[in-house]
């Protein structure tokens, strides 16, 4: 089935809960209402004509400058039976974004959603294990948001970029010892 047919099947089943679509050849997707995503996903997986049994990728994107400012979660789906692909999107507000979890539909969504929570702060309601996956557990903030600022320190370690060795050397600081300075008496002299 091509993208238009998949979209038509979804619209036929869910009507207005498919709130938008873009079906050009590069990357077709349908925008789904946030509260309907679990049903739509289950239908996509189970329906024999669609059979989208594989979640290829779950991405979160932050659009603070669009109108309206939003975050999107994009689900790229693939069918091993019919070898077709499709994408679903949900659009979320930037303050406390929340969307139902899909880990019951595709098992791999568990880890992808944990990553989206970790890096973007999107809460997946009903998730069995909503905790950070890549960053430490006591990390504050969600770094891939567009308004992220590097803090100075994390537990005493520098987070903001520190001046690199070249800059510090040019500023007059002695970086390390010279390469051949171990013995005060017999200094190696590099042959030119």
């Amino acid at each position: 089935m091509d993208a238009a047919a998949i979209h038509a099947a979804l619209v036929q089943r869910f009507g207005e809960r498919i709130t938008g679509a873009s079906l050009d050849a590069g990357s077709p997707f349908a925008i789904v209402a946030t509260d309907a995503i679990a049903e739509v996903a289950a239908f996509c997986k189970v329906d024999p004509a669609l059979a989208l049994d594989n979640l290829m990728c779950l991405s979160a994107v932050d659009y603070p400058k669009e109108t309206p400012p939003r975050m999107e979660v994009v689900y790229h789906l693939f069918s091993y039976r019919h070898l077709h692909t499709f994408a679903l999107k949900v659009q979320l507000p930037r303050e406390s974004p929340a969307v139902p979890t899909l880990e019951g539909v595709w098992g791999v969504a568990n880890w992808h959603e944990r990553e989206a929570w970790d890096l973007f702060g999107i809460l997946f309601t009903g998730h069995s294990d909503m905790r950070r996956i890549l960053l430490p557990d006591d990390w504050e903030g969600h770094p891939l948001r567009k308004d992220w600022q590097d803090p100075e320190y994390y537990n005493g370690l520098h987070v903001k970029p520190t001046p690199q060795m070249m800059e510090r050397a040019l500023a007059g600081e002695t970086i390390g010892v010279g390469p051949f300075d171990f013995t005060p008496e017999n200094k190696h002299v590099e042959e030119p």
Partner: peptide, 20 residues
């Protein structure tokens, strides 16, 4: 040594293991 290619935008990268 000093964070390497990730020194500038790596929020999670230790800028050189000689910090610890």
């Amino acid at each position: 040594n000093n964070g390497g290619p990730y020194w500038r935008y790596g929020y999670h990268v230790l800028k050189g293991v000689d910090e610890v």
